[in-house]
């Protein structure tokens, strides 16, 4: 397992590229930072280039930019209504960042930014803090009605409220862990099957034939992982939209 070629954990390793230390905190520029910046650059390139021509009949790049925008805008509008459109920059940034980081992770030798729980947790906390702060800012104490659904018999209100509070608190956890675990598990699975191919082919002709099965698995899993990369970005986005809807319209 020590072999770098077959070690499924090796791909998640973080390596320093430039040592930076600010006030005792190690904020070195690492491969993770590099891929965050590449993600940002890719998004900026596609969207700025795509939206710069402003053609009435869009070209390819403009279609990509418009489709991404309308996809997120429709998701947000359906989940949180027209007033939710004020969160469009946040939701669009989250979707584009998670999607691009996930897709980048599918390129061999590329680092997957979203396979680290600290990154997904930071994004999830950003969403939850936005929801909580905006919810109290806009609705005041009325926001607490989120935990007391209307039309519930008084006898079970404490129980329901407890469940609602637990549900609210588990949101950032589920948001962060879902994305992190999907990316991590997917990449480990891919690497394990790819590792089988490498190990078996080194065993001669018989092993070469045996390697066909994991090879087919790797191909199928790669397709699945592309789906998961998009799906998890979408799930993260739609859950964000639904939580924002709670902040905008707290009464169930």
């Amino acid at each position: 397992m020590a072999d770098v070629r077959t070690d499924p954990i090796h791909q998640f390793g973080i390596h320093k590229l430039v040592d930076i230390n600010i006030d005792g905190y190690d904020v070195s520029f690492t491969n993770s930072s590099l891929f965050m910046i590449l993600t940002l650059a890719a998004i900026a390139l596609v969207l700025l280039w795509g939206s710069s021509s402003r053609a009435v009949v869009p070209g390819r790049a403009q279609s990509v930019a418009e489709l991404s925008y309308e996809f997120v805008a429709n998701t947000l509008r359906n989940a949180a209504g027209e007033s939710g459109m004020r969160f469009m920059p946040l939701v669009f940034s989250l979707f584009m960042f998670v999607l691009t980081a996930n897709i980048f992770g599918m390129v061999p030798y590329f680092f997957t930014v979203t396979s680290h729980i600290i990154v997904t947790a930071a994004l999830a906390l950003l969403v939850i803090f936005t929801v909580t702060i905006y919810g109290f800012y806009k609705n005041g104490t009325h926001f607490l009605k989120l935990f007391v659904p209307s039309g519930v018999p008084m006898a079970i209100v404490p129980l329901v409220t407890l469940i609602e509070i637990i549900s609210f608190l588990s949101r950032p956890l589920s948001l962060a862990v879902r994305l992190f675990a999907n990316m991590l598990a997917g990449h480990i699975t891919l690497k394990v099957f790819a590792g089988f191919v490498v190990t078996l082919t080194s065993l001669g002709a018989f092993g070469f034939l045996g390697a066909l099965l994991p090879l087919i698995m790797v191909v199928a899993l790669t397709a699945l992982e592309f789906l998961v990369a998009f799906l998890q970005a979408y799930v993260f986005t739609i859950l964000t939209c639904m939580y924002l809807n709670d902040a905008l319209h707290p009464g169930h």
Partner: peptide, 17 residues
């Protein structure tokens, strides 16, 4: 690795936003 990841994520995400 958390401080570095958070630091660069903050920079990148604010820039993106």
């Amino acid at each position: 690795t958390f401080p570095s990841q958070l630091f660069w994520l903050a920079i990148v995400f604010i820039a993106l936003y």
